[in-house]
Design a protein around this nucleic acid. Structure first.
Lengths: 230, 230
DNA sequence: CGAATAGTGTCTTTAAGACACTATTCG
DNA sequence: CGAATAGTGTCTTAAAGACACTATTCG
């Protein structure tokens, strides 16, 4: 049976990523300054088109684009959601599949022509910047998802180096949630989750030496049955 | 600046919906029997291509396709996730954006040529059926999402008529979760959520008359801070 | 020693689970 | 009345919050 692929015009389809980290006590999102139209000169999310010959899935596209445009390989990556419409891109009806990612604080750089600059941008200064398309809204959605997940999972560990102290984890969680949590509650979760193991050595921290922890080999992110209270 | 839309071949992009209801004490999913290739004769999820001239967003596409193919207008609709790959559709690399929907138990019918038949199919019999593409996997993901949300929200009400009793709601939740819950816990949630209002009349139910409830005008789905236990 | 941070002990609070009890309807 | 289902009262339990207490390090 004949199938006419041109029966409908396909929408413009792209993959973008919202990559967060916590740095200097603030939640930062990775943005690139666009060197090409549309939105030349604006800040935008790193992303681009699927390479249908080589990308197995859109997950691969998201990772590939992050690496190409910013040299970052995320520690955590999941689909956020698709954003679509005819008014979000001047080129016509478009769909962007957005990924939500986390990484250890690190330096970033760009090596390709379509990107002028790459920066970690504090989510608090976003309102005052010139942001491409609907990327501002998208980042807000991603931030909400991160906050929600931080209430019932250990997802914030992916913003830390592979070894970290409870004090660092507490501080990252508090930055994400924008409110304090109980150290004791965090310790109880660390024990209950069985996701972590303590290292041999301890580390200086201004007072008593702190135990270092790392995520156990192959441990999955566990979800708790209750949220931290809001 | 020139932008070359053909720099990359766009993937094939479709929108599909997993529409559930609870009927005769079982979770059912709405499937259509495909009258056209690919997968002619198989059961598949209702969906299709975006009409980029007329659909404002992919949400509209999902609703439109459901209505065209099955005559159903869902009470609840949200994005599930996109599924992508070069091996899921014989026509090449494809992306399907999948929606997850709920509706009151109702009759369904088809009025278009590309659909031979429309049926509510018990999720328990899916393994033994011939299902198009990766739709079996997709339905499993959607079912997990439904089960997860039923643990911390009142989402199962959208499988009931606009007026319902606590007994009916309890039974729908138990069907979705595949385990019993405490009636008392459910009543506490109904009161705490402030999503519902009692109707004037009560209704027969084999014993004492039962209070009818309905979702308050404009009430949003509330999320509880704890799950029902597993 | 005192300041600072790490880590423990334990009481309170919240919301779910368990389950017995009362209430209402119908045959 | 008895069976069936609706709805309440209340004790127990699980896990978070609050917060005081001890432990260790450094200057």
């Amino acid at each position: 049976m004949h199938y006419d692929i041109n029966e409908y015009k396909n929408p413009l389809f792209t993959v973008d990523s919202v990559l967060f980290t916590v740095k200097e006590g603030a939640l930062k999102v990775l943005m690139v300054r666009r060197a090409k139209a549309p939105c030349e000169g604006c800040w935008g999310l790193p992303g681009g088109f699927v390479d249908i010959e080589n990308d197995m899935t859109t997950d691969v596209t998201a990772r590939r684009k992050l690496k190409e445009k910013t040299s970052v390989e995320p520690r955590y990556l999941e689909q956020l959601q698709a954003f679509s419409g005819s008014d979000r891109d001047p080129r016509g009806f478009s769909v962007t599949l957005v990924y939500f990612a986390l990484v250890t604080e690190q330096d970033v750089s760009s090596h390709i022509a379509s990107v002028e600059d790459v920066q970690w941008i504090d989510v608090k200064v976003l309102p005052s910047l010139d942001i491409a398309f609907d990327h501002k809204t998208i980042i807000e959605h991603a931030q909400k998802r991160l906050q929600q997940k931080a209430l019932y999972s250990m997802i914030p560990v992916y913003c830390l180096p592979s070894q970290f102290t409870i004090g660092q984890l507490k501080s990252v969680i508090e930055t994400i949630l924008e409110k304090p949590i109980q150290r004791k509650s965090l310790i109880r979760r660390i024990e209950a989750s069985d996701m972590f193991e303590g290292a041999e050595q301890k580390v200086k921290s201004g007072g008593r030496l702190a135990q270092l922890y790392s995520v156990k080999e192959g441990a999955d992110l566990v979800n708790f049955e209750r949220n931290f209270s809001v």
